[in-house]
Nucleic acid binder design. Sequence first.
DNA 1: CTAACGTTTGTCCAACCGGTCAAAAATTTG
DNA 2: CAAATTTTTGACCGGTTGGACAAACGTTAG
Lengths: 209, 209
Amino acid sequence: MEGSAPRRTRIQQEKRELILEAALEVFSANGFRGSTIDQIAEAAGMSKPNLLYYFRRKEDIHETLMQRLLDTWLAPLRELDDIGDPLTELRSYIRRKLEMARDFPRESRLFANEILQGAPRIKPMLEGELKTLVDEKAAVIKGWMRAGKIVRTDPWHLIFSIWATTQHYADFDVQVRAVLGADRGGNGRFEDAARFLEQLFLDGLKPKG
Amino acid sequence: MEGSAPRRTRIQQEKRELILEAALEVFSANGFRGSTIDQIAEAAGMSKPNLLYYFRRKEDIHETLMQRLLDTWLAPLRELDDIGDPLTELRSYIRRKLEMARDFPRESRLFANEILQGAPRIKPMLEGELKTLVDEKAAVIKGWMRAGKIVRTDPWHLIFSIWATTQHYADFDVQVRAVLGADRGGNGRFEDAARFLEQLFLDGLKPKG
DNA sequence: CTAACGTTTGTCCAACCGGTCAAAAATTTG
DNA sequence: CAAATTTTTGACCGGTTGGACAAACGTTAG
């Protein structure tokens, strides 16, 4: 039985990867409408008609890119598990998300761009798959709260705040680097951010006793 | 002595306002490159050449919009003051920022769009005016830390985290509403967010004792 | 070799888009 | 009123963009 994905030659596989890599670069920097097929083709080292041989429409590239993105993008949350110690679990979720902001900033920006424009292409997924996943994990977190392992609060907004604070370092990177300046804006900023976020989420700002 | 702003008739004032309002709507929803002069003109209820009579180029609209935005956008941070109680000051800064996300989501998205694309038009302002302001306020916060009023941590990343968590509710509004669902995604979400953020920033997640 | 198949490219097109321009319409001024 | 000035519009233009297409090129199998 053949899967739903069309069978492809080795060259097609490779060229499609090349195009997707180039498109990620271009789309994440300029947005969908701000990017041209020519730009992507040039970044992929081929002619425009050649690119259109592998992807019939500009939208197809974006769609493929978005589908792949979502899987890897939600992986850290999927890993959030009921097994270990709650605070440790949350701490490592934050760390994983921050690492993704550091290692895959283009993916983060591509996603941010899509949401900013009202998520025209992935709204169904947000209301379906994403909501289901978040509700599921919110239930896990609620369990931790009932068990007194973490403070009682709103699990959904907790997840939002983790997304916001970590993705900020990818999406608003220019601003972060501008404000930190040349000396503190180097690669150390992610370690500083990790330390800060750990402290914020665990203990907040109020001094003890 | 005449100011640097050109003198304008009453009609010019009004029409320019009309255009800027329409442009805010269109730009914040589609980004700069994703927006056309025709869209803005239609939203402002006038013809394209008529619009171009008031703003010679598309970029001029965006630039004017951006200049106005920045003043109001940074107002809450400017108000952060050394006078009152530190924790109260921070709490009301967070509240003000969240209110801006609620009341001016288009402005937030316009700004986010600009930063996401690498801030091509406002980078100098980020490295100049913004950095100066943030450094100044970071010094104030450091003073609070030295006085033991709030816990010792990185003031810059603290400010980033406040920006990120509050603006998230404007910039990622579609996602927030999708995940919360019809029942909890109503107007109450901002109050829920306010309660959550207050708790997070003050006490963190670790249970007492 | 050659037929079949997969890949690449030059050329072209229609739609769109930012911006111009001259002339008409409306408004203000005297 | 009429002249002067401001505002509005239809028509147009050059450049860009997404995409089509047929022909050329390369590769592989018989």
